[in-house]
Design a protein around this nucleic acid. Structure first.
Lengths: 347, 347
DNA sequence: CTGAAAGCGCTAACAA
DNA sequence: TTGTTAGCGCTTTCAG
């Protein structure tokens, strides 16, 4: 019967129970060679009867690597980031690594807090979807050997690090071109605040497509801001009340697409007024695929969240296994998925 | 200039640089009272110039608590669990606790592997959505003081632990009653495999509602199995080809609802044959709300994933702060959300 | 094949 | 106010 010690049994307890030295237990626990089978047997029995489990914290302290990584995203509850998370998790687990996850909620202070907390736990590496633009706080950590990979958005000021983004501008260009090809000339652009990298890039792509088609850039057709329902509804009402309203909408991410659809459907407060009642339904293309976009017939510019997570994790583990070289920057492709909403002709 | 030591500076390095004793650095780092302001200043300067950051692993080893918890869910990429995760994260962070997250993918071996890995890291507590039914492996851990809360499903054999579930049977009963009240007599039930607790409970509720209405239970109207598109499509085809086909469907979770809608829409392979072409669209109610269910007009039995995560986390932290007493079992309510699809009359 | 001793970076307990 | 000593549970090094 084990003595009534506080807390869990340690290797020392096991050693005492098995009548061997501490180091022998360590050998058995870690499957190190060179232990007599019968000795090992006794040790195993002691482990079993005491309910011993190695303390990885202590192990880590001695060995240097924690076999854990930190993942900081914008929000796990957002399907884009949860898809990315799952891919990161899977690769980490395959590498024998556990994952600390944290949502920054687009708050730079919280991002920093999470990252530094992970660093204090001495994670081996980090995958970060940056919320802020100042990553100087990371420099000492990176210099101390913590590997960092940025995903979805590049870091702001701070250490040069590997980055995985998607082809935001290209995707937005393709979407806009698609609407132009279907005859639209007044295309509104609704997106996140321009301070967010992806939104700025998508705006760039939209503008490039307009320019290439010889069309003017009309600021009145652009509405950028928080992705919440109220803001989107208000902006949409303004847009549709214009003297020369848009015949098509390009929405800059999944949340905004859904909010826009709700606003158009009137599910979210009063439906935005249509000044020209004769006009058909407005065309719409959204950046980011979302779960039942197929059921709703929404044409989208899809990116692959799991693919992004995988790319970031693979990059990270390559660094952790010693690969050196200059920081890499991967740009993942996007894909136009035609489903009907983006192919409606102008009214 | 710091010496070229391997790895990161330690408290000892800081102490040497500041010309004070180790313990003084410790006091400053931990904001312990009783340090002369000017001494503290020198220490801070040394910390800054060396890029020192406390090693929480070592701290943990000494203090006993790791200020981390483990969260094992079925799949972070599933919106239900990602909503739950976010709530857990938020509460944990507020408690100064970091979260290890892992997806079991409904695989008991992986659940066990994750849980035990978290225990080896000496997490203070666990929140587990059990995939398996045998939780004996947890007993030594719980006896050693790791708090465990089960969420969404109760544990199988194993230690008695706090559990948070939703009123699965009641929700399914309410949904079925709603369809009955709208005149349906042939209601199909499509759900997860009955080995999964929530599916079994929802089936129970469905049966109770039928029984209360004096209707027979027809096994031919029940299709339980994996939530993938192919299985749902096949089952739906079978159901709709019955001599006396269902006029309404009750779908047992979010994934199955979406798969069913896809099958009905013909988005997922050939549309299931309708033997009676004169009949209107089949009525449908789904268990679990999902993102644009409002846009699709789908009536659902909604539960609150974030609420479940919050409840589980609050229970866990209450235990961690010493609350004793018998294991609690919380049952969260569900809510019928009427949106049209569940109110269609029978053909 | 087995073991004793040192020490990873930190905090707790106790001097000075 | 500051410092000294011991030791958390483990791995590493080196001896038997």
């Amino acid at each position: 019967m084990p003595e009534t010690r506080r807390g869990r049994p340690t290797m020392n307890d096991v050693a005492a129970a098995a009548g061997v030295a501490l180091k022998t237990v360590s050998r058995v626990v870690n499957n190190e060679p060179g232990v007599n089978a019968s000795t090992a047997e006794r040790v195993h029995a002691a482990i079993e009867s005491l309910g011993y489990r190695r303390n990885d914290g202590a192990r880590t302290l001695r060995r240097g690597r924690t076999a854990s990584i930190g993942l900081v995203i914008e929000d796990v509850a957002d399907p884009f980031y949860s898809g990315l998370s799952r891919a990161v998790e899977d690769i980490a687990l395959a590498e024998g690594c556990l994952v600390f996850t944290g949502s920054s909620g687009e708050d730079p202070a919280r991002e920093r807090e999470l990252v530094l907390a992970f660093c204090a736990r001495r994670v081996d590496g980090l995958i970060i979807v940056p919320a802020g633009t100042d990553h100087d706080y990371l420099t000492p950590e990176v210099e101390a050997g913590i590997a960092a990979v940025f995903a979805d958005r590049p870091p702001g000021a701070g250490p040069d690090a590997d980055t995985v983004v998607c082809d935001n501008a290209g995707g937005a260009r393709a979407g806009t071109e698609h609407l132009l090809a279907h005859g639209h000339r007044r295309i509104a652009f609704l997106a996140d605040a321009p301070s967010i990298f992806t939104a700025a890039e998508r705006l760039r792509g939209y503008r490039e497509a307009l320019a290439a088609a010889g069309l003017p850039y009309d600021e009145g057709l652009v509405a950028m801001g928080r992705p919440d329902q109220a803001r989107v509804l208000a902006d949409l009402r303004r847009l549709l009340r214009l003297a020369d309203p848009p015949t098509a909408l390009f929405t800059g991410n999944g949340q905004i697409t859904v909010a826009t659809l709700r606003a158009l459907a009137g599910t979210a407060g009063p439906a935005p007024v249509r000044e020209a009642p004769s006009s058909g339904p407005v065309a719409i293309i959204g950046f980011d695929d979302f779960e039942p976009a197929d059921l709703l017939g929404i044409t989208v510019i899809a990116q692959d969240p799991a693919g992004m997570g995988r790319a970031a994790a693979e990059l990270l583990f390559r660094r952790l296994s010693g690969e050196s070289g200059p920081p890499q920057r991967l740009e993942l492709p996007t894909r136009l998925v035609v489903r009907g909403s983006g192919e409606r002709p102008p009214a």
